[in-house]
Amino acid sequence: MPAEHGNTRDLTQTSNADEDHPTWSPDGKTIAYTTDISGEQQIAVRPAEGGAEKILTHFERGSSTRRGGRQTQSGLHSRTTSIACGGCRWLVASLFRSHATCIPKSTITRGRPTGAGSHTASSAPNQQSGIWLYNTETRKASLVSDPRSNDFQPAFDPAGSTCSFISTRHENPTFSRTEFNIATLKMTGIYVATLKRGAASPFAPQSDEGVGEGRKDEKDRKDERKKEDRKPEPKPLEIDLDGLMARSVPMPIPPADISTFDVRDEKVSNSPAPAR
């Protein structure tokens, strides 16, 4: 659908497939989506302007849900990304490089191998979702979540410096007035972990002390503005896995029922569901 003028276009022109979860590649040239054209949900890519479909996966029991879309965005410029898939296995992919790998179940050593999605909900002994990262070069899968945490929907930021995710870490027990039950409402928040050890936290304390704007001349300010306007170049991710979750901090937003979010440049969008 053109953003301003023009008609809606049927990109895939199929009448016999359930196609869903579309997402753009960062350069806007390719669209990834799920399709069951082969009988099971698979992940496919197609030129955004139209063209042949390329199915990247061949799951026997289909793939997982929305996470595929968001993670494929990271896939273009990262070597480490992850997507949940059916059959309690992992797909890890740099999809826009047309490179996808399934990790056999046997390589998953503990916890629930999922970045999100509900397909693997019953596979973990404690029913908690954890974030795994898989390095497509070393072919090594690493669980970075604490097994006690319920973390899901990981997403790298476009600059490749942080990994954000949703986690149900807020405890908001609400007592019923009519029975001895407790409901936990609005448990989720968005958390941000810096990928490199020693990197500044996005929510580190700030101080204006000793920073006099008046001491900068106009040239310095222009240089700063140019630097801020420059888009970061895509580069392979570098991740210090040790202590990754210890570096995660909550985004300062109220607890809510967040099921999905998007990271674009320095903007994180989310739409919490109302309490029911």
Binding site: P22, G28, I253, S269, S271, A273
Partner: peptide, 28 residues
């Protein structure tokens, strides 16, 4: 349901839209 956008640089959360179902963003 409210669409929020949090600006990591400004460290500000903004309500962009109320009463929406789901949403999807363009590539940029």
């Amino acid at each position: 349901p409210v669409l929020h956008v949090y600006d990591l640089k400004e460290r500000k959360d903004e309500k962009v839209l109320e009463d929406l179902g789901s949403y999807a963003l363009s590539a940029d």
